[in-house]
Amino acid sequence: MSHGKAHEKVLILGAGIGGLATAIALSNAGYETTVIEVQPTLHSSVYGVGIIQAPNQLRALDAIGCARQCIEQGYPAENMNRMYDREGNLVRTVPGPRIPGFDFPAMNGITRPRLHTILADKAIEAGATVEYDKTITEVKQYDDRVEVGLTDGTTRTVDLLVGADGVRSVVRNLVFDTVYEPRYTGKSVLRINIPRLPEMDAIVRQEGRNQRGDRVGVGMVPLSEDIGYLFVNIVWDRTVRPSRDELRELLKQELAGFGGPAGVVRDHYIDTDEDIVLRPEEWLLAPAPWHNGRVVLIGDAAHAVTPNTAQGAAQAIEDGIVLTECLTGGDPLEQALTAYTERRYERCKLVVDYGYKARQWEFHPTPDFDPQEMGIRMRQSLIEPI
């Protein structure tokens, strides 16, 4: 595969953010691209409430022609974070990194349905096909092709299979002999949609301790002029699955004793019809290289990062752009795919390492690691070109 000849076919498993972004990049480069998604519709394939878009994500989206729409349909913020104490006093404002030559905000918040719609529309406009309600049943690799059987009874013959199928990737098992499973940090995240409070002109962060003495991290992310979401990081036994009513009580308990913005949300916006989503924080870093023959991994399938990095989607989008650059560089396929992992591995490892180390520090604080300063340094390093 080289130079994006029109007859070269790519099948992408997973119409999440990474899969759709990769489809846009490959289609723009002249590949015949099909995306297969197990969920029945675009709407049902969207997980979570909203997303934080750091400047490096906006730069990657700009490369596939989607950044401007995201900023128009989101909430561009001049600062990254505003830190408050438990009582609600402003402690510090973190401006966030800027990319020289780009006029991106420090952070853009956007709802996941809006982002998915932007990416899906752009993928189709670029010439990609997106097919829902099916997944792969078998994969046979040959020197010159991959034959992929699907649940709709068809077989697709393609030049490359891209696993963009997330942290529980089935494609990952085609790339490695060893089974790699994501690891749990010991913390889970509660999220709920809320109105955007006046303080939410950046990501609002508050920290305190709950009645048990556990550290509780609270965040509020603006997603538009009117709405945002609250997230609360809690120490959690992931085998326990609370009911809807139990989740509301849990959230109120965790926010007990908070003043300021978190107190306002607790008292006014928890008892609503909005769903509360509880998700475990997991991480994974597959070893290099992230391909085997004509099968390659991108995004969470290769490197799942914890949400405290705000980099999961960004790294998946960057993967798609770099993969396309490597494939169109004129090298034989094996070299191109090897070069792709080589360009991505250390950058993704930096993010994965920061994410779980910051979480471990919360359980066992040590003086040699300052999660706030390390987070600022990580975000600064991601300003470097991909």
Rank of each mutant, 00 (worst) to 15 (best):
K5G: 08
A6E: 03
L11D: 11
I12L: 09
G19H: 09
A21F: 04
S27E: 06
V35K: 06
P40A: 08
L42I: 12
S44V: 12
V49W: 07
V49P: 08
I51C: 11
I52V: 15
Q53C: 13
N56V: 14
L58P: 04
A60F: 13
A60N: 12
A63M: 14
A67M: 11
R68E: 15
Q73S: 14
G74L: 10
P76M: 02
M80K: 02
R82K: 15
E87M: 07
E87H: 11
V94A: 11
G96K: 10
I99M: 06
P100L: 12
G101N: 00
G101S: 01
G101F: 01
D103M: 05
F104G: 00
I110T: 07
R112F: 02
P113F: 01
L115C: 05
T117Q: 02
L119K: 09
L119F: 05
T129D: 03
V130N: 05
E138Q: 12
D143G: 14
D144R: 08
T151Q: 12
D152F: 00
T154K: 13
T155C: 08
T155K: 11
G163L: 02
V167D: 13
R172M: 02
V175T: 10
F176L: 07
T178K: 15
E181Q: 10
R183N: 07
G186I: 00
V189W: 10
R191H: 08
I194D: 11
I194Q: 07
I194Y: 01
R196V: 03
E199Q: 06
D201C: 13
A202Q: 05
Q206W: 00
Q211G: 06
Q211P: 06
R212G: 00
R215D: 01
R215E: 00
V218F: 05
V218A: 03
G228L: 03
G228T: 04
L230Y: 02
V232M: 00
N233G: 09
R238C: 03
R241F: 03
R244V: 15
L255H: 01
A256S: 09
A256W: 03
G259S: 08
A262I: 02
R266V: 10
R266Y: 04
D273L: 15
D273S: 15
L278W: 11
L278Q: 13
R279A: 02
P280E: 13
W283I: 07
A286E: 04
P287T: 01
A288M: 13
V295L: 11
V295W: 10
L297P: 15
I298P: 15
A301V: 03
V305C: 15
T309C: 11
A313L: 07
Q315Y: 11
A316Y: 04
L323R: 02
C326P: 03
L333Y: 06
Q335L: 04
Y340H: 07
R343G: 09
D353Y: 05
E362I: 01
F363D: 10
H364D: 14
P367M: 08
F369P: 13
P371S: 11
E373N: 13
S381H: 11
